[in-house]
Design a protein around this nucleic acid. Structure first.
Length: 325
DNA sequence: AACTTTGCCAACCGCCACATT
DNA sequence: AAATGTGGCGGTTGGCAAAGT
């Protein structure tokens, strides 16, 4: 409220990140874990604001990020999640742990939106008046939003009333964020809140150390594998859990990413999970609320679940909303 | 080859919610 | 209770590269 953007501060650097900055940031996070972003520029000497550091980390440096083309499955997931959730990219991204909300948003804006528009104009031509289809679409979005907000409110109430608190850490879920709904049947990434293939960072370091040419802040350098993977190397148990609930074979490099403190202990950083694992630790005791979402989950994580998909899409909102109460 | 247009994506910006003072 | 600080989200933009002319 009235707070000037951090970017306006004198001496704050803007624009693309340099490899040196990336390394500094990664090294710091490797040691201290993500979170407490305010202290990051102070302790590292980076001439970046905390927000910029966080964004750089979450959107690019964070281990486990998959880059490059989206698979068909990912594309379908995004399309249907967007239809269901609207432009809640963080929520959508929670279903695609290897993709950042920024990536998904970009993909949507640059590819899917056009694609769907094209398809829509093709199929609707001569069938429906434009105004009608638009208004019904908007109505659908509004209803879906309402539905998810109802879900959220109910979950919050149920959590508050529950004598048996779920054995999970609430801060992970950012319960205050009214834009987020919670899914009971969320695939369980809980034990691996942070996907970590280390590939991105490893690539960064590798190229960077080999080639001093630093024209491309995104792909022209890479981190030395050893340097970055020390400490975040492996958590196979978590890996199996993650794979078990993610049918997308692209997820096979998922590992947990715990930050390692300087004393060698592992720190489970809760802030770390808020994006990728937004819903991961949330549980919903009320079975009746599961119905529509179970269908969603089933479809999302089963490529062949055509019937399930149809059921989901055909399900009336009134029906699913009524079941909440 | 030179110029223009288009597409992509990392980063910025503004806003919001919550925590803290 | 109000002001301030922080983290997070979604919309938008600027710069670069590829494609087109």
């Amino acid at each position: 409220m009235g707070r000037p953007p951090c970017f306006d501060k004198i001496g704050i650097k803007k624009g693309p990140w340099t490899p040196e900055e990336d390394i500094t940031l990664v090294s710091y996070i490797q040691e201290h874990g993500p979170g407490n972003w305010r202290s990051v520029p102070i302790n590292t000497g980076l001439m970046r604001c905390s927000k910029s550091c966080r964004l750089r980390w979450t959107n690019y440096l964070r281990p486990g990020i998959k880059r490059g083309n989206f698979t068909d499955h990912e594309e379908k997931m995004i399309i249907h999640l967007q239809a269901l959730l609207g432009n809640r990219w963080a929520a959508i991204a929670s279903y695609l742990p290897q993709r950042t909300d920024n990536d998904i948003k970009n993909f949507w804006n640059t590819h899917l939106k056009k694609k769907l528009n094209k398809q829509q104009t093709g199929t609707e031509e001569g069938l429906e008046k434009e105004g009608h289809s638009k208004s019904s679409h908007e109505k659908g979005q509004w209803e879906r939003r309402l539905q998810t907000d109802i879900q959220m409110a109910k979950q919050a109430l149920s959590d508050a009333l529950s004598l048996q608190k779920p054995n999970h850490i609430l801060p992970d879920t950012n319960p205050s964020d009214s834009h987020h709904l919670t899914f009971d049947t969320k695939p369980n990434h809980a034990s691996s809140p942070y996907a970590s293939s280390c590939e991105n960072i490893a690539r960064l370091l590798e190229n960077w150390t080999k080639s001093p040419k630093l024209t491309d802040t995104n792909s022209g350098y890479s981190f030395n594998n050893n340097m970055v993977t020390t400490g975040s190397s492996s958590s196979e148990g978590a890996l199996s859990t993650t794979n078990a609930c993610t049918p997308d074979h692209g997820f096979d490099s998922l590992m947990t990413f715990n930050s390692f403190k300087s004393d060698g202990s592992v720190e489970e950083n809760n802030n770390f999970t808020t994006r990728v694992g937004l819903f991961q630790d949330e549980r919903r005791p009320n079975l009746e609320t599961q119905v529509p979402l179970t269908l969603l989950e089933k479809w999302l994580f089963d490529d062949g679940a055509v019937q399930c998909h149809e059921d989901l899409m055909n399900m009336s909102l009134e029906e699913s909303t009524a079941s909440l109460f």
